[in-house]
Design a protein around this nucleic acid. Structure first.
Length: 426
RNA sequence: GGAGAGAUGGCAGAGUGGUUAAUUGCGACGGUCUUGAAAACCGUUGAGGAUAUUUCCUCCGGGGGUUCGAAUCCCUCUCUCUCCGCCA
């Protein structure tokens, strides 16, 4: 959510940013500013009434404490209060109505894109491209997809999962199950080594948490709802992790805060179909290790670079061919001001698979979270929040299987062998 | 699931109808003393909003009510703790 004080002072900048996103409802900004003016007017009028009321009540109080009894003046004062009370009630209702309208409109406005982000009409920028992809392509002509490999090596069973629950809930078996667990452990260890603190969190959240990180109302339909208790299954560990810092005022000297968590993620993925959902490409339940940073406005772009570098390093260590894209403005999620997507190339499917997305949400989330910090001068400001996957497990798993296959076995990358305890799958 | 207790500033913890944004302690910040530090002593120290920059308003878990007036009384919701039951 944008701050109202920011909107008041930066109308032009905001409109330009929203146009860049191809956001259609630009009129919202004018409506917000008008409502804000109106709210201010009514608020100060109400304040004056309250002031009068407080003044009279204090006088009555004085009579009671000093003279210990009734007085003609007291009845007079009471009469005055009755009048004010009626007016107060009327105006409070008006104010509340306007406040809610204002809030509702503010909730609809997305974050302003960073200067580096391209317009909606432009292709996503490829800012990094691993060249050794070509050596993989030459290596073998008879390459199997991971679902074909699964049949050959007994890696996972989608049918079994669909009988237990439904499509998109895979069952991993034997060496593949261990490889999956090894990946999670490896990612967590790498993150902890980069001084991210590990959290183990609830997989279920309430509505407030979803609102604070921006999934509600925007992506409400992507989440599973437990109606009986009004809880949602998490679509990403970012939500419970970031909500650990709801309603907090941190000290600048404690920033940046770096945290990581491993969770399963649950997504309804309504409307997905075809090759996109083959095998492990798009699932209703999958595992992901998430990293976040909470920092100041001055340092958030540095944090973003640091996170990108960290993810890059991990992909390198897994020896996977990948590229990094800077998303253009239309592809940004509403909370994000700038996002880098990491894609690994699958030589079997001959396409790029998104395995991580690293975003700077600036103060958009912290405004909803009421997450602030006190700077060295003692002034209180909103934090900047960043989040990224490090990394999404199934797509790393599937591309590892596909890219490391040979006729009768699948090789495990060196860095994972201490975790798996075997150096190939057969 | 049953019974009871509670929710107050960064934290701890008073306050049961009237100058109470709220005693006090800890913490933090500033000062005195000291070569420096500690100790001791003195002082400052919640947030949000509006504004003519001076004042005003709001906030004691959330919402509603009683009253001229609510942290304080009533209703309701949420959460926490204790005891009992059930259970990985």
């Amino acid at each position: 959510m944008l701050q109202i004080s920011f909107i008041r002072k930066n109308k032009k900048k905001i409109l330009l940013g929203l146009k860049k996103r191809n956001f259609q409802r630009l009129y919202l900004i004018d409506e917000i500013l008008i409502l804000d003016q109106e709210k201010k007017k009514i608020q100060s009028f109400l304040n004056k009434i309250l002031e009068q009321e407080n003044c009279i009540t204090k006088k009555i109080g004085k009579y009671f404490s000093e003279q210990n009894g009734y007085n003609d003046n007291v009845d007079n004062f009471k009469q005055q209060c009755y009048k004010l009370k009626n007016e107060k009630k009327k105006i409070s209702i008006q104010l509340k109505k306007i406040f809610l309208q204002l809030q509702e409109k503010l909730n609809q406005v997305p974050n302003i894109p960073d200067e580096k982000v391209n317009k909606f009409s432009v292709e996503n920028d490829i800012i990094f491209h691993e060249k050794n992809i070509y050596s993989y392509v030459k290596k073998n002509e008879n390459i199997l997809t991971h679902w074909e490999l699964s049949k050959k090596f007994c890696l996972f069973d989608l049918k079994l999962g669909s009988e237990i629950c439904g499509a998109g809930f895979p069952v991993y078996i034997n060496q593949c199950a261990k490889l999956q667990r090894s990946l999670i452990q490896y990612f967590l260890d790498q993150n902890i080594q980069a001084s991210y603190q590990e959290y183990n969190l609830p997989y279920v959240i309430n509505e407030q948490s979803g609102f604070c990180t921006g999934q509600i109302p925007d992506k409400e339909n992507q989440m599973y709802l437990i109606e009986k208790d009004n809880f949602y299954l998490i679509p990403t560990g970012e939500i419970p992790l970031m909500n650990c810092y709801r309603n907090k005022t941190l000290l600048e000297s404690h920033l940046p805060i770096k945290a990581t968590t491993y969770t399963s993620c649950f997504r309804r993925e309504a409307g997905s179909y075809g090759s996109k959902v083959r095998g492990l490409n798009r699932l209703h339940q999958f595992d992901k290790v998430e990293i976040i940073q909470i920092t100041t406005s001055e340092l958030s772009s540095f944090s973003l670079e640091e996170m990108v570098f960290h993810v890059k390093k991990m992909l390198h260590s897994l020896e996977l061919p990948f590229r990094i894209l800077r998303l253009n403005a239309t592809d940004l999620s509403p909370t994000s001001s700038i996002t880098y997507d990491f894609e690994v190339y699958s030589i079997a499917q001959k396409k790029w698979m998104e395995v991580s997305s690293v975003s700077n949400c600036t103060d958009f989330q912290s405004n909803r979270l009421k997450l602030k910090y006190k700077n060295y001068k003692g002034k209180i400001k909103y934090c900047h929040t960043l989040n990224g996957s490090a990394l999404a497990v199934p797509r790393i798993l599937s591309t590892l299987l596909e890219n490391n296959q040979s006729n009768n076995k699948i090789l495990i990358p060196k860095v994972l062998i201490p975790y798996t305890g075997f150096d190939y799958i057969k």
